[in-house]
Simulated assay, not measured.
Amino acid sequence: MNAQIAVRPRLSVAEQLADLAVEALIDEAELSPKPALVDRRGSGAHLDLSLELMHASACSLWSTFHAMAAAGQAAGQVDVALRETLGRLGRDGEAQMLAVTGGVNTHRGAIWALGLLVTAAAQVDRPAIGAVALRAARLACLKDRHVPARAPSNGERVRQRYGVGGARAEAQAGFPGALHHGLPQLQRSRAAGAGESHARLDALLAIMARLDDTCVLHRAGVEGLSCMQDGARAVLEAGGSASLAGRRRLKDLECHLLRLNASPGGAADLLAVTLFLDRLEPTLRAQIGSL
């Protein structure tokens, strides 16, 4: 009798990018202990969220990210038509997410950020994260003529009230929170011998220390933002989350944020972006090398 060997089909670039985006969202949700955010310990400052809901939401977005990456490949260039296709796909993905979560906004910001990045990554010939971020920024700067008229979101109201850029400006600038703060801290902590979970927590803290997080501003105003930024810097200055002094500062930071009902959701989205970009080059390099 002849033995039959099942050969697993090679994943397309679009499939790999969708996998990376969903994995980044799941890894961000699983990372613990994140201050005032959903993690394996509980729901943080979000009474309407749970780790299980975050998992379900992330998985529901695979088809959206796959469609966005495929659209980027098909277009081959950055233009208004592609931007408007992404807008439509993003709105469809948001509706799918809300259906899964019962109307709870779990990953609206991540759809925007990771959607731009998977689309950009599908177009680059060489897997350089700087080139991907720059192309994503070019896409973010284009206008979508088909955005439906609706009441301003919490983020839009915060931007108008406090004069901060928010998620849109972060994308249009090429995700500096991830490229200039999250990724370098992730690499520094790894080089210093921190375990992967501590390195990722330190990356989150580096983002929190500098980001004008609209989620925090919405919930707790300037007091909450100062609490987040100063507290995150204190953890890193004490030696990071892997040190005893850093863990004490991290616990203090969480207590203060919970007291203010402030959750750094914008920083969490940028941590997911950081984790996505961290894995992007080796994944695409392996894909190119196997062709």
Rank of each mutant, 00 (worst) to 15 (best):
G177I: 05
A167M: 00
A128V: 12
A169W: 01
I129T: 15
G163C: 07
L117S: 12
Q172L: 02
E170W: 01
P148N: 15
A120R: 03
Q172K: 02
V118K: 06
L179H: 04
V147L: 12
F175L: 09
K143R: 13
R159P: 01
I111W: 05
Y162V: 02
G115L: 12
C141W: 04
A133I: 03
L134E: 11
D125R: 13
R126Q: 13
V132A: 11
P152A: 12
A121P: 05
A110V: 11
A167W: 00
R108K: 15
V132C: 12
G155E: 01
A169V: 06
W112S: 06
G177S: 14
D125C: 15
R126N: 08
G115W: 00
A121K: 02
R135P: 05
G174M: 11
R157A: 09
A121H: 04
N154T: 06
L116Q: 09
V158G: 01
Q160T: 04
V158Q: 00
G103Y: 09
G115A: 13
N105H: 10
V132Y: 04
G130Y: 04
A151N: 05
A151C: 13
A122R: 03
H107W: 11
V124G: 10
I111P: 12
A140L: 07
A113D: 14
A173C: 13
H180T: 09
Y162G: 03
G165R: 01
N154K: 03
A122V: 09
G166W: 00
R159K: 03
A121S: 14
V104Y: 12
A122I: 06
H180R: 14
D144P: 07
T101V: 15
A99M: 05
L142H: 10
A140T: 06
T106N: 11
P176K: 07
A167K: 01
C141M: 11
V132T: 12
R135H: 03
V147A: 14
L142W: 07
W112K: 04
R150E: 13
G166F: 01
V164N: 04
A121R: 02
N154E: 14
N105T: 07
G109T: 02
A167S: 00
D125K: 13
D144M: 10
G103F: 14
A151D: 15
G109F: 00
N154Q: 09
L139G: 10
A128L: 14
G163T: 09
A133P: 08
D144F: 11
R150V: 07
P152T: 09
A171H: 05
P176F: 10
L179D: 09
A173N: 08
G177R: 00
A99G: 13
G166L: 00
N105C: 15
G165E: 08
T119D: 12
G130N: 08
A171T: 05
A133Q: 06
A178M: 07
A120V: 08
C141E: 11
L179Y: 05
H180V: 09
A128H: 09
C141V: 05
Q160F: 00
V124D: 03
A171Y: 02
I111K: 08
A113H: 08
